[in-house]
Amino acid sequence: MLTKRIIPCLDIKDGRTVKGVNFVGLRDAGDPVELGASYAHQGADELVFLDISATDEKRKTFAGLVRQIARHVNIPFTVGGGIGSVEDVDPLLEAGADKVSINSAAVKNPHLIDALANAFGSQFVVVAIDARKVGNQWTVHTHGGARPTEKKLFAWAKEAQERGAGEILFTSMDHDGTKNGFAIDPLAKLHQLLAIPVIASGGAGHPQHFADAFLLGHADAALAASLFHFGELTIPDLKKILHRQGIATRATYEN
């Protein structure tokens, strides 16, 4: 059967992973290629690399890094950060990226979703949505959650699907960094509303949070960063715990 996916997310700045990484046996914890390959080896199902470089100049080096990742990582990976046009995507696809994720640029110019889906196929386009609750409305934010927009989460997710998004990566800014669990209610509502897969993001701090995202939020995949990077939870351990709760994942450990 189709399994739930576990996705580590790596933030990249000027070609290096940003947050400190506490992994035993890595020669260079700042090297995204080595870290990505290590996650793939541990049993990650996909990887996300987000380029948070401040300048366009630094971003240009990202395609070179994507090529190195594609060479060394034998599982699918998504790249994102600073993509504003079809022209920005060409070199990433050519370098071997499996999917791209777009966020603020899609909010500003929703036609970008149509353009990317037409040019490369829906399976290539992940629309990332950062939202937080304002009053009792889930409101879309851009620029890393700093700027509120007019858009509401559910209407925007539906529109993104209709424009050709292949997946929705939903981050609750209210939960991100708290380690108190994913935002279950909006996940369940997205699942009801959409025909495309939903990736849960923001709030992972404990194996049970993943189980809740899958069982209660019906997420197709769950993403986490620091929890994995600091070695607080390993992917094989997480998959073992999920297995005991009857959640099917790609078994990469000995039962």
Partner: peptide, 10 residues
Amino acid sequence: QKVPHMGWND
């Protein structure tokens, strides 16, 4: 069941 069938299957 979502379409596309996307992810790891046995």
